[in-house]
Design a protein around this nucleic acid. Structure first.
Lengths: 350, 350
DNA sequence: AATTGGCACTCACGACATCAGAGTGCCAGG
DNA sequence: CCTGGCACTCTGATGTCGTGAGTGCCAATT
């Protein structure tokens, strides 16, 4: 069992260690924090904390450092978010305000966050799975190339090339476009994808030679649409600030290789961010060894949910386990809130 | 003056040092390379090389390592490209072959190259400045948003949102589109941008109240086109393999921070890649301190030109100065050639 | 003139010893 | 339950020493 004062000691240890990067001893604690007791008493508390595996001594005789479990308790029970300075708030608005589409906005967001925290910043795209498809356009590019453009009501625009053998004249192309639109427009991404798949399956049942060129083109385009909708359903990340890892390199026992790798691959990181469990404020933290399954056992991620008109996604930062959780949590929360506001304003103003 | 054998000694030093990462001494050289002379003779040659600042001794009494100037001489006069293994060639085709648009292809290229060399790979987008504009499409997205889609004859497709206050019906939209097309379609990006700017300048001469809503929309769209064309003129890079820097970290005296930074910013890297001077084979190398102006004094870049149907661009790799130049040069050349072939096939087949 | 063997010299590096300081655990007394 | 005191441990800095790799130079050889 750990006493109330014991927890305060843990808090002091985490704060000092994050601050100084040196194991903190009983004497340091009584010096820097106004506990009304002597170093010996603190030592007893520290022994308790060590029994509970919340702190550990790197060598027999040096101060203690928090374990991952210690950070966890700190974040869950002891951390009070450090409010942002006015300058920091101003920085957020100056980064995020301004024109541009969703891609632009998220890129600016991730830059703001990496600037604010000095860590690797992560922004998860809002999921488009339940967005509904509002437009499909076809543009003939010549020599058999057909450009398919798909737009959702949430403002995502994407394009894909298909190859068709036939050339169409104006009205014919409109007709073709109408056929494609009929299948998907007005439906959600999920439904649309399913309907397209059904159509394709039905067509592939018949022999290839029974298909007219006109219909072959139609099917080819549907195939393109199917592939693109598939991309819609995959979540995506935007990242920035990887270079910061090199600055904090000494905080990682091993190499920063696996972390850079994860940044480049994104898929593990995406799963990590998706699977984090948020508290009632939408905040979440995943600390050190908890990230082992993703190959990121030496890193921590803190994140906050934001609301992209209906679908929730996350903004977060990743850094060494020894990070300033209160500050980073406050930063991701502030950015998430600002971003949510931007996205809603956007929706009404435009 | 350095004798012929002196140069062979330099070659041996570069090869061995790249191989073993240890300063190489006279004895090692006579052991590993079949010069027909004694260690003392090699020592005399090494003294010459040191006078010419091609090699240097880290401490009074240890072997020598090449200087940047030494690597330069090696690359210019001594390196014979190491031909790729069949497996490596197969890897290139398996990466690069396949469907997809230009973006896809370049992403696959950069992955192939990083896989092949274990370095950071860089692919420069072909310049679109002299591409000609083949299509402009307008798509109305509702609530005042208008999507502009611009396509070049070289296959680049890009989109941009503009905000217009008026809603258009079908024929009216076609009319508007016709107006926009008239300004730019068929022209090169450069010309198009200039014409658009002229139109905008002319319009801004008049007072704002003299402009009809219909024309305001037209101008708003032209503004969007202008911004997008501006992007066309900026070159772009695709990068991959940044994590490899962490593996070769010990090769960098200082931190890898500035290099990761350059990878993230891209702009310095872009200039570096653009300004390299190629030999008659289209190959180029920029070594160590030569990259100081770009903040990359501890890195080397080797690159090869590829031909994207008319405009030249480069593929390359970046790594520590102590890199295997013959292998990396061979790899970038092979990839550049394959890529050139793909792009030309593409052009005719599609 | 180029090459060679010999030799003295230098310097980095690892092993080892020493020492001071920080910090701990424990105990007996308040 | 808290506290001062004390013996103990371990790290890290500092210093010394021996070893070995590698050099530069020179006189002798081809």
């Amino acid at each position: 069992m750990v006493s109330e004062r014991g927890l305060q000691v843990l808090r002091a240890i985490v704060q000092d260690y994050v601050d100084t990067n040196e194991p903190v001893g009983s004497k340091t604690i009584v010096d820097r924090h106004a506990f009304g007791v002597s170093a010996a008493t603190i030592r007893n508390d520290m022994a308790m904390l060590e029994d509970e595996e919340l702190i550990v001594a790197p060598h027999t005789s040096s101060g203690r450092i928090p374990t991952d479990k210690g950070y966890r308790v700190f974040v869950d029970h002891l951390a009070t978010l450090r409010p942002l300075t006015p300058a920091q708030r101003a920085a957020i608005s100056s980064f995020l305000d301004g024109p541009g589409d969703l891609d632009d906005l998220l890129v600016r967001t991730v830059r703001a966050l990496t600037r604010l925290t000095g860590q690797v910043a992560i922004v998860q795209y809002p999921s488009f799975a339940q967005a509904s498809l509002s437009h499909v356009e076809l543009v003939q590019l010549g020599s058999g190339r057909m450009l398919i453009i798909i737009v959702t009501d949430t403002g995502r625009v994407s394009q894909r090339l298909a190859h068709v053998r036939v050339e169409f004249d104006g009205p014919d192309l409109q007709q073709l476009r109408g056929d494609v639109c009929e299948v998907v427009v007005g439906r959600s991404v999920r439904e649309g994808a399913q309907l397209v798949d059904e159509r394709l399956a039905a067509a592939s049942g018949r022999g290839a030679d029974a298909i007219a060129p006109r219909e072959a083109a139609f099917l080819e385009i549907l195939r393109g649409v199917a592939e693109e909708l598939d991309e819609f359903r995959q979540d995506k990340l935007v990242l920035a600030g990887a270079a910061n890892l090199a600055r904090r390199e000494s905080d990682f026992r091993g190499s920063i290789y696996p972390i850079l790798e994860a940044i480049e691959e994104q898929v593990a990181l995406l799963r990590l961010v998706s699977e984090m469990v948020a508290d009632d404020q939408g905040l979440s933290a995943s600390i050190g060894r908890e990230n082992e399954p993703f190959g990121l056992g030496e890193a921590s991620v803190v994140a906050s949910e934001y609301d992209a008109t209906g679908s929730l996604a996350r903004v977060g930062v990743m850094g060494p386990t020894r990070m300033d959780y209160p500050t980073n949590l406050a930063a991701v929360r502030a950015v998430a809130r600002y971003l949510t506001r931007m996205l809603h304003e956007d929706d009404t103003a435009r």
